[in-house]
Design a protein around this nucleic acid. Structure first.
Lengths: 191, 191
DNA sequence: AGACTGTTGGAACGATCGTTACAAGATGTG
DNA sequence: CACATCTTGTAACGATCGTTCCAACAGTCT
């Protein structure tokens, strides 16, 4: 029955993240979390703390999973700011196309439910979004965009990222999503 | 105490809509709805039916409130597709800037919580989004866009609409939102 | 006035919410 | 083997969930 942990903590966290991702914070009940992770209530609370703490760890896990993908896409020399945008959004499209993860984006779902999150959750969501924005802006400047242009384009690319997540949740086809991403990659700030 | 209805049904529905808008379907509890509308439980159920029915009526009320604004913005002769996009997004920006309504957009919040809605709610959200898309496409063609261009641009404008709602929920400034809208209005499909 | 219709507030239902407590069992250390 | 430590499943907690029921009351009609 017990003694040493009988499950993989990291794998359990990954599954809990999927539950929050799919259902959102408020509809991710403890029952759904126990079912999704395969853990009992005792193990869940003993390992991760309460629901709010588990949510925050899921957010961390989300960042730790996908931030490297964005970073890798953004580094590498890019011929133009448009190429940066395209590379960034391609990571998003790939994630959405992944059938092993829920639709949309945990960060976007959480942002939409902002008023229902506690202060720590709100701060974390906001910080993660700001981090992506800063990362984008830096990459855009490195690709030759002016400071103001980079700032605006980073914001718009982030916005497109969010919109892809929403449309995906609503059941739009991957063709439609690709169309949106392609249009966003056409640099609306000609130099 | 009672006899004839002691409240304005339409005003109550407007307030219920705000509760769903702010909190999302699942966090819009009956207690919050009674508090937000000022009605008792009996009056709520007697007038609007159960929570799912009230949600659908709130969606209808939302469409009935804002669809005319979008229609008015989209009709009027526009010199170019870009002008159509700008006019459409301006309606969204105005709604978001309205301090008397919650942040974001009821439709976007509901779309993000798609998996938590029942079949009727999902269908209605989807139909409303498709309606906006068709309305946009028609206006864009009327403004001189080719059929394919109009379809793609309608989709992208809808996407921008959603992104504005998400960013607004996350607390982005109205300056940032205006930047996103302005960039989207720069027609990414030059003819 | 008296019967009827309809509305209202509040009590109460079973179900589920997040959380805690705890006994039973498995492991590691002497 | 005995003991301490940790994990696990389950029972149970109070609170809140959506919903129903109902008695008390106001208005309308004969």
């Amino acid at each position: 029955m017990a003694g040493r942990k009988q499950f993989d903590v990291d794998e359990a966290l990954r599954r809990a993240m999927h539950v929050f991702w799919r259902w959102g914070y408020s509809e991710a009940s403890i029952d759904r979390l126990t079912e999704g992770t395969g853990l009992g209530r005792g193990s869940l609370y003993g390992t991760f703390g309460d629901k709010s703490a588990l949510f925050r760890k899921s957010l961390q896990r989300y960042a730790q999973t996908y931030q490297p993908l964005y970073e890798r896409a953004l580094t590498g020399p890019h011929p133009s700011p448009s190429a940066v945008v395209a590379a960034y959004l391609q990571v998003t499209l790939n994630r959405i196309a992944d059938p092993t993860v829920p639709d949309g984006c945990l960060l976007t779902v959480s942002a939409t439910q902002f008023p229902t999150l506690d202060a720590e959750g709100q701060a974390m969501v906001r910080a993660m979004i700001d981090g992506l924005r800063a990362m984008l802006q830096q990459a855009l400047q490195a690709a030759g965009a002016g400071e103001q242009e980079a700032a605006a384009l980073a914001l718009c690319t982030l916005a497109t990222n969010k919109s892809l997540a929403v449309l995906s949740r609503a059941g739009f086809s991957s063709d439609d999503l690709a169309t949106v991403a392609a249009a966003a990659a056409r640099n609306p700030f000609p130099s």
